[in-house]
Design a protein around this nucleic acid. Structure first.
Lengths: 283, 283
DNA sequence: CGCGAAATATGCGAAATTGCGCAGATCTGC
DNA sequence: GCAGATCTGCGCAATTTCGCATATTTCGCG
């Protein structure tokens, strides 16, 4: 039986693709990953990776071994969750993953309430667009705008929010609707419901700014560049912006709260879940 | 995620029950096991074992964690088998587990043939009464006298051998059958077919020696103490001993060859399996 | 009640592991 | 074609880890 730490490093290398990326993911030096993998190769008597400068490719044997070792990592994460689940009391650190603006505009302002209610809970709030893997315990809780399909996750709808067009009061007053300019997402978000909704409204008019960053859209709208489709929790918080009513059917997006099955009964996690539900009602 | 080596030590401790036993099983010092487990407790924030002098008991949390971590060990063994299975050519070390007398009297004398045919194969021959776990890779191949029920194992009957009563020529000539003394197994082997067979023959006559060791029975028979029920592969090899025919129906026991599913196609393992089959025909 | 076997705890020196810095190699963008 | 960025490989020093020896505790047994 090979050394388990060697296997841990190798599994990450197999997933990440390069020694350096694996080293970053593991929080160690790349030389350590290289040595660990070399040790695994020695103990198995197999050549697992082709070491070429710039690229490290798994051999056939390497892929086989990585596939067999992957369940080990699953089990290791399960141990981590079990340890978290066994923690007594409501103390502990809970990591939340949420869309960036959601984290900053909705959750963060209300965190003080959670803090007052449960002083023992430490919160790690990660605003990120890519979806954190709850299976790999990159987060304990996640807020998403799409109902996920992953197994072993408990999904709960905790609310929804609507969109409106926002512009400065001056812009809305001075510009006739047929001359409106718009601010929208770039191609990476072309499939999102709010972007499709916006395109329908825009019609033949002009989109003068495309950006993947919502904060940039707000800044542009504030500067009087045009109208942006913003969630109410953001647009209503901007004193310089006003909603502009349109004839189109309004849209809203649902917010889903995700938690891993193993963690759903942990007191600290439950407390944060309750808090997040209240955040949605308040927001 | 906890350190995987810590988990490996803890899983073995959970199975073995004491620090010392776990240390023996792992081939390390017991101090190392204690330190590893302490490190795991620190990283999980849980108390996993109750340390009392002389006894080490798992806590409830410890049992939970051990149960979750056990699949990790399964996967680790699977990696070991996969590595063995990926070995190219017929070179490699193959471990055989067999009943002690079988190993010494049948297999060992013929090993030279295997060696001549496949010089690259190194054999580890373990004579042991307790059944080696092929799942945990204590052996690659096992010979057993009972058809096992374990899953993931391939079972093949490769032969059988008979039993007879053996005594010295002088003893058989000078002693009338009604005065025969017998040599048999002790209580631990009372349920074995050959012992039941022997008891039926003995009838009301005397069993003057009971021992769990077959070699001891042979030595006693050679010394003229009485008659022992020996497998032919042993008794026929003793120049001082002669078979004594009895009216009872002769018995024989089947020999089963076991191999783990993952290893059945490994060239070196296949070669040894073929060799073992020939051993049975020759013996 | 004393003794021995076996298990756990502790302290110390040796050995292995790790991180860092630097060199060599390859790919990308201009 | 060239400069910059990124990745791998290697040697050295600091840290961590491990095994051994010793002490302590507990259980079984006469």
């Amino acid at each position: 039986m090979p050394d388990w730490e060697d296997l841990r490093h190798f599994v990450v290398l197999a997933r990440e693709g390069t020694l350096s990326a694996a080293a970053r993911a593991l929080g160690v030096d790349h030389a350590t990953v290289a040595r660990r993998v070399a040790a695994l190769e020695a103990s198995t008597g197999l050549k697992l990776v082709d070491r070429r400068a710039r690229t490290t490719t798994l051999t056939d044997d390497g892929r086989r071994i990585a596939a067999v070792a992957a369940p080990m990592e699953e089990a290791a994460f399960a141990v981590g969750r079990a340890a978290q689940a066994a923690q007594p009391g409501v103390d502990g650190e809970v990591t939340i993953s949420a869309p960036p603006t959601f984290a900053s505009a909705v959750i963060a302002p209300q965190l003080i309430r959670l803090r007052q209610r449960h002083p023992g809970i430490r919160i790690k709030l990660i605003g990120e667009k890519r979806r954190a893997s709850l299976n790999r315990r990159e987060a304990d809780l996640a807020l998403r705008l799409l109902r996920p399909v992953e197994t072993a996750l408990i999904v709960r709808k905790i609310g929804s929010f609507g969109f409106s067009l926002y512009g400065t009061a001056a812009y809305l007053k001075e510009t006739p609707p047929h001359a409106f300019a718009f601010i929208g997402y770039d191609a990476t978000m072309a499939d999102s419901p709010q972007e499709i909704w916006l395109r329908a409204i825009v019609g033949t008019r002009e989109v003068v700014l495309r950006t993947n960053d919502l904060e940039t859209q707000i800044a542009a709208a504030r500067a009087g560049l045009g109208l942006a489709a913003l969630p109410h929790y953001l647009g209503d918080g901007e004193p310089q912006l006003r909603r502009h009513a349109v004839a189109h059917k309004p849209i809203s997006r649902d917010v889903w709260l995700l938690v891993h099955r193993d963690l759903r009964l942990v007191p600290a996690v439950r407390a944060v879940m309750t808090f997040l539900g209240e955040c949605m009602k308040a927001g």
